[in-house]
Design a protein around this nucleic acid. Structure first.
Length: 492
RNA sequence: GGCGCCGUACCCAAGUGGUAAGGGAGCAGUCUGCAAAACUGCGAUGCAGCGGUUCGAACCCGCUCGGCGCCUCCA
């Protein structure tokens, strides 16, 4: 039984979809005028995980996430670079898919673009005009907030309070400062579509109302986005949608907290933001590993709270993951013990129960991760007595299956721990005199050969030689672990 | 001015009335030729501070201090 914190009611509620075993959710995507930063990644990830958990819980999920591809910032960017808006939006939509793909974020069921829904937007705007909730001025159409009595329900703001502190530019043509544009008459050179009010383009808020209703129906289950969208964006969506249909819009409103740098919100004006691709480029780890580190980091805090981003935090995430992949490596080795692993299946059951309970508790990923750590610890203890091959396989499968809810633990052990640019490998092949230097990364075969040589040395009790080999490999980023049976394992 | 969030050990982080999960780092020990990994042990009589309610509070109430967000585009 999933409970979610609903911003609309200000408390946690049991989630019950409109239709049994079906969930329809809409999440505000991004405006495609620049590369995504780590904050966008968090939001995308939170809802990716929510979707995965719903699916794991047996729901068929229709997940819609939009691209805002008509907007002032896009026009500005296009003008600056002397290219078309389409060129700008196509570039950043592709970049979005690349970046989020690296983070293991699955594409939504439908990813509509505002420009593909102009017709729906116009129709919705017409309905609002017809209902007396919107008015037309010089080719612009505005939503009249004063005509919508429950405005402020989501953000818990009263109209008077808003006006008292309003910093909105006073537009003489608006009846009230808080009225917002549904349709804007376009200036020359701007993208424009024919409408009943002349040539123009949609306002920002109306597109999400139009697209969500088009793909999910007038009333649907979950609407998500970053906390900063609560006001005015989501407040306006509710006003537009309910105002047009007279029916309930989204039933559960879920908002994620910010990624911060030194306790401050990341923002372009402060200049304290990191793009996703920048993080991947700077990472010393391979793309897949970096993606997993980022996911682990982003999910190590509850989605509702703030999250401080730093190099150290990333390192800690890597360290924590090491423990898991070390275990997976050991699980992959043959066990040889044939006995019922009763305590093992008990540990697995315990973890599964705790994991599910944590995820059901408003997507409490830190506690869910703690459950996985608990299993890790249990299994480590049990492997001391030896586990059957079947038991090992089952445990690895369980980690993979539960981890899939978070997008973790899908890599093979050998893919983990791979560094992006290993220190230039000057491997000295001492077995074949004269000395041969190899300028590239050491291969698995070379490592295996070195390992064989070292085991040989150990058998001869030539520990000096054995240590020298270990040191040599270590300098190449290879760590050796000796097993009790005299053989060794290694990792990069 | 209005609305709201946060302050838990060296670090990260759960916990919203019943006596402080988990991880990382550190230290000590077991194992090991030595390491590494794993395991075991150690670490907040206390949850920003002060008062109050209660048999009982990190959790509820009040005040104070400190940090942040939104009210304009923003994940």
């Amino acid at each position: 039984m999933l409970k979610l914190f609903n911003t609309l009611t200000g408390r946690q509620e049991v989630f019950e979809p409109l239709e049994p075993s079906k969930v329809r959710m809409y999440v505000c995507g991004v405006t495609v005028y620049d590369y995504c930063h780590i904050g966008h990644a968090r939001s995308a990830l939170v809802f990716d995980v929510l979707r995965r958990h719903l699916e794991y819980s047996g729901y068929a999920v229709t997940f819609v996430k939009n691209f805002t591809d008509v907007d002032d910032k896009i026009i500005k960017r296009a003008n600056e670079q002397g290219i078309s808006c389409d060129t700008v939006t196509e570039k950043y939509i592709q970049a979005y898919h690349e970046d989020m793909g690296k983070l293991g974020i699955r594409p939504a069921t439908v990813e509509p673009k505002a420009t593909e829904h102009i017709h729906d937007i116009i129709r919705l705007t017409e309905r609002l005009v017809a209902n007396g909730l919107a008015y037309v001025v010089d080719g612009d159409v505005y939503f009249e907030v004063a005509q919508y009595p429950v405005y402020g329900r989501l953000s818990k703001r009263r109209l008077e309070d808003l006006q008292a502190g309003a910093r909105v530019d006073v537009d003489e043509r608006k009846r009230q400062p808080m009225d917002f544009a549904l349709w804007k008459a376009s200036k020359p050179g701007e993208p424009a579509w024919q409408s009943p009010w002349g040539l123009g383009r949609p306002g920002w808020h109306i597109e999400c109302s139009a697209m969500s209703m088009q793909h999910l129906g007038e009333t649907f289950d979950i609407h998500g986005g970053g906390m900063d969208l609560i006001f005015p964006h989501h407040e306006n969506e509710i006003a537009q949608s309910c105002g047009a249909t007279g029916r309930e819009f989204a039933r559960y409103w879920v908002h994620n907290g910010f990624v911060q740098i030194n306790q401050e919100k990341m923002s372009k004006s402060v200049g304290n933001f990191f793009t996703i691709r920048e993080i991947f480029e700077k990472s010393e780890w391979s793309e897949e590993v970096t993606g997993e580190i980022l996911r682990y980091f982003l999910l190590s805090t509850h989605y509702h709270g703030p999250l401080d981003f730093s190099d150290q935090a990333l390192k800690e995430a890597k360290n924590a993951l090491n423990g898991f992949y070390d275990l997976f490596g050991r699980l992959a080795e043959p066990g040889g013990v044939v006995m019922p692993d009763q305590s093992l299946s008990q540990a697995v059951d315990r973890c599964r129960g705790a994991f599910k309970a944590a995820m059901d508790d408003d997507l409490n990923t830190p506690v869910a991760i703690a459950a996985l750590q608990g299993l890790r610890s249990d299994v480590n203890k049990l492997t001391k007595n030896g586990l059957s091959d079947e038991g090992r396989r089952q445990v690895r499968e369980e980690f993979r299956s539960l981890g899939n809810n978070l997008g973790l633990f899908q890599l093979e052990r050998w893919d983990f721990n791979v560094r992006v640019e290993p220190t230039p490998a000057h491997l000295t092949l001492t077995t074949f005199p004269p000395t041969v230097k190899i300028e590239e990364r050491i291969t698995d075969l070379q490592i295996e050969n070195k390992l064989a040589e070292r085991i040989d040395a150990k058998k001869r009790k030539d520990f000096k030689w054995a240590d020298a080999i270990r040191e040599e490999l270590k300098s190449l980023g290879i760590t050796i672990e000796d097993k009790p049976d005299g053989t060794s394992r290694w990792k990069r």
